[in-house]
Design a protein around this nucleic acid. Structure first.
Length: 274
DNA sequence: GTCCAGGTTTTTA
DNA sequence: TAAAAACATGGA
């Protein structure tokens, strides 16, 4: 169990291991946490703002006291990643290598709608531009938290917009996909609550009713937005990684925690290229 | 100017 | 049915 106490500059966490800020926030799973000059990260989730930093071995949260449990959950700090890593590492030597490359990754529990919308924007796009579009989406249509930060606009808000309204986002052809997703979620044609407990293939099919959502975007939404760890999203990087590092292996073979393996591998592959 | 980016849809053969 | 091409935008 993670424990915490109030200290002079925030809330100090105890009993946290297998967690690194850079590994977690820069492994490609989220687009709304940015590193600050002092090495801390600031981001927003569910309309709440968090500043988080490492001080020596200690993690310090800067947030409202009442939100601590929300952030512990969001950061997935109660899950035993060491155990998961040990089990995954036994499956393949290259998976062990990948896990050691970014041992502090945790799969964030992002909001379903935000994850879905973000990964619709991600298609045929690069990460800096995805972050820019998501940032403008929040700035234009989210609710103001302070002078610099905004919430992620909900589906109902976006469903009332037109392509013209979305023009300043400069998201290109993805505008119609965002609007289709927003209207289907807002009018309950697709129920996010229901999807949470649906068998994985049915959940995938539900999300794929949205224009612009194929298998990969659906899997990303399920893994990052619904915390369905059995999902193993395959993008161009993962396809390359599987060919080169795991010939003859398919993602399902990594089992109930395949999604965690996917993050280790994705991050590892991208850093190999540099 | 060309190529490419955490894909998907549409068109073509 | 399967393989190309198109899709907006912007940085390299």
């Amino acid at each position: 169990m993670v424990e915490y106490k109030e200290v002079n500059n925030g809330i100090e966490l105890h009993n946290v291991s297998d967690f690194d800020l850079k590994d977690t926030f820069e492994c490609g799973q989220c687009f709304r946490f940015d590193e600050q000059e002092d090495g801390s990260y600031i981001g927003v989730a569910s309309g709440k703002k968090l500043r988080i930093k490492k001080q020596g071995q200690k993690i310090i949260l800067d947030c409202v006291w009442e939100d601590v449990n929300f952030w512990l959950d969001f950061l997935d700090l109660e899950f035993d990643y060491q155990d998961a890593k040990e089990k995954l590492s036994k499956l393949h030597p290259n998976l062990e290598k990948a896990a050691k490359h970014a041992p502090g990754i945790r799969i964030l529990r992002q909001e379903p709608w935000e994850a879905l919308c973000s990964f619709i924007i991600s298609q045929n796009n690069n990460i800096p531009r995805i972050k820019g579009i998501v940032s403008r989406l929040c700035e234009y249509f989210g609710e103001k938290i302070d002078d610099r930060y905004y919430s992620f606009p909900d589906a109902k808000t976006i469903s009332r917009l037109s392509k013209e309204d979305l023009a300043p986002l400069r998201c290109g052809f993805r505008d119609k996909y965002i609007l289709d997703a927003a209207s289907k979620v807002a009018n309950d044609e697709i129920n996010m609550e229901t999807i949470k407990s649906l068998p994985i293939e049915q959940a995938r099919q539900e999300l794929m009713k949205i224009k612009g959502v194929g298998v990969k975007v659906a899997d990303c939404a399920l893994l990052y937005g619904f915390h369905r760890l059995e999902c193993f999203p395959m993008d161009v990087w993962m396809k390359k990684a599987m060919e080169e590092l795991f010939p003859g292996v398919v993602g399902e073979e990594f089992g109930e925690h395949a999604g965690i393996a996917q993050q280790y591998i994705y991050h590892y592959m991208r850093n190999l290229k540099k």
